[in-house]
Design a protein around this nucleic acid. Structure first.
Lengths: 230, 230
DNA sequence: CGTTGTCTTGAATTACATCAAGAAAAGTGG
DNA sequence: CCACTTTTCTTGATGTAATTCAAGACAACG
């Protein structure tokens, strides 16, 4: 699902890259409101992007997956407006925030890709906003599980039986969808009962993705589209 | 509230600019899912960015104000994932989508600014997502009105009495906040009753912005920060 | 002066949150 | 390997914020 990577791209990225990093589960990669000297591309592992609200509640903005570029806000604005935390062990490609600017000067193609990724992110957030604003719990949960599954499939993250890894807690999903834990749990139970999606033990089974897409009101246009890799 | 505009910036933008355009209220500037040959910077007037859902509902993603750059998705991805419509008469600075790429090649500073704007947009959407996901109707409405007012103030859009223009319908606000029209109306009435915000006849009065910010749980960090102008 | 769009208000309904408590898992230390 | 604690998941009962339904009041407009 990623754009082809030419030799030039490869060389430019290598020059820009400052190293690799492996982090344990539960590591804070970015702290809300803090400066950050590095930005990353996720090579493997999963994580969460979230905002903490003044009253202590939490909004999960997105699930972080391999191929995602994280820290763009820190990169261009200097400061992050959401936190990023690893859920599993993660491998990251490390870049220096400072070098971002030289990337724009020396490699317009890669700079364009970065902007492209920002636009993709904006699109995903707009989609999420629509869900929270307009849809019922059942639709929201179905939509989110479908999205996770589709993304995993696009990156070969699915096992032979069509199941994929999704090692989060129900609380994380609840915080992503703006639902209470209890109601999320009951909705998941209902979807399982209906044979639409079975999420247990950190793995997500979707017997019939098309049927789940229908419940989740996923429009055809929002398929996981190819994107550049930085 | 905009970054200083050097002579070089000015020249580069002028070269990139393809013209100016004035549109009547109710004009569709971008159609959801369609290609677009032009992108714009708003010089004056107000509009709406929204997504239409398969079942006909509508999510207003943002209110479009002077200084906003619209069409970035079309610019880099080729296709818009939300619609943009003018609410008042608008004046727009027109750019050709095709020239965007040459901007990246020839003027990295402006390209960086574009990415900066994309990051700002992402930040705003994340904020909106948190509101829809975690807060009550009263808080949401207060937050939105506060944001509108703060933005107007930052761009000298406020009259001497501290009121600003906000020529939208209650339905638009309802669709932005994921609330029903009826409940939005009742919440507005309550805020008016409490002397926190008075929105009528297309104008918004906020006697005490600090008090409204408190109700809207606006954290200090999210003040309207300076941004580049393209 | 009817027609249409927006705003306003009251009453009935419901989807969801909150409260409460038990059942599995999953760590932790002896 | 087994008690013990802690975390996560599950289920039922109760409460409420917000939706939906319905209808009237304005205002703008041709």
């Amino acid at each position: 699902m990623f754009n082809a990577f030419s030799q030039d791209d490869e060389r430019a990225t290598q020059r820009f890259k400052s190293g690799e990093m492996e982090v344990d589960p539960g590591t804070q990669l970015f702290v809300e409101g803090a400066q950050a000297a590095q930005v990353y591309t996720v090579l493997s592992g999963l994580g969460l992007r979230y905002k903490t609200l003044p009253d202590g509640r939490r909004q999960v903005v997105n699930f972080v997956m391999p191929g995602d570029f994280i820290g763009l806000q820190a990169g261009v604005m200097g400061e992050m407006h959401h936190a990023v935390e690893s859920t599993t062990k993660m491998t990251l490609c490390v870049f220096n925030r400072h070098d971002l600017w030289s990337l724009f000067e020396s490699n317009p193609e890669r700079a364009f890709d970065l902007t492209f990724l920002a636009a993709v992110e904006e699109h995903l957030l707009g989609e999420a906003l629509s869900r929270l604003g307009q849809h019922s719990a059942r639709t929201r949960v179905a939509w989110c599980l479908h999205r996770i599954h589709a993304r995993a499939q696009a990156t070969n993250g699915c096992a032979a039986d069509g199941s994929c890894s999704f090692p989060f807690r129900q609380q994380d999903l609840a915080d992503a969808l703006g639902l209470s834990l209890v109601h999320t749990n009951k909705t998941l139970a209902a979807l399982r009962e209906d044979g639409l999606a079975n999420w247990a033990g950190g793995r997500l089974h979707v017997p019939d993705p098309a049927k789940l897409a229908e419940i989740g009101m996923v429009d055809g246009g929002s398929a996981a589209r190819p994107r550049p890799l930085i």
